[in-house]
Amino acid sequence: MSAYALQEADTEVMAAAKPETEPLIAARNVNVFYGDKQALFDICLDVPEKQVTSLIGPSGCGKTTFLRCLNRMNDLIDICRVTGDITIGGKNIYDPDVDVVALRAQVGMVFQKPNPFPKSIFENVAYGLRINGLVDSKGELKDAVERALTQAGLIDEVHDRLEAPGTSLSGGQQQRLCIARAIAVEPKVILMDEPCSALDPIATARIEELIDSLREKFTIIIVTHSMQQAARVSQQTAFFHLGYLVEYGATDTIFTAPSDERTESYITGRIG
């Protein structure tokens, strides 16, 4: 496909996905380079507030790269370079006056493999609250930790062993602990990078249920390899392919009647 045709396709994608309300996150012409290799091409994407947006696409399509642009996790990679604008709540997060630490406190992240700190369950959740100075007293801290664990649907399973190491939990519980850790600092946005890929179906179902309930308070962007999962949990779906945003729109439409042939091939499991 020629570059011209692609550009045309992208404008179409944007037009189709125009949300009714002002988007919380807006990406404009985002290009990402790893050294000489370009990983993302002119991504334009509006993420509506308090909805779940899923990013799907084959491995290496750039969906995780895009996700990690949103909390500038890519800054950690020396050879990674980002151009274009990403605004969150109207503020370009790549502006020089943006403190990346403050940004990450507002844009939480949950990773592919559950990665609790090798500390107690309590400490795992309390850490972010403490370093960000969100609590003034021990009592307040305890309340906030319990609130986060409740929101993450973990409190019933761990209330009597908050001092047990986080790593002693099962995989699914660990992942929910990581979610609790992320929501404890009350971010605006939660990024999830294939949060269920290491979990069994029951644990996955719990996380999906959790994502659904978190939608009331947070804007969630989830990268997933499971199209069924994207279809189940998200309201908006973006399909990435070879570094391009191919199609973006309401999840219902993407999974029943996608407009791009590449999307169709990918989600129906044909070679594409």
Partner: peptide
């Protein structure tokens, strides 16, 4: 779990 055209 068919999707898109298969689902239809």
């Amino acid at each position: 779990q068919p999707m898109a055209q298969d689902l239809r």
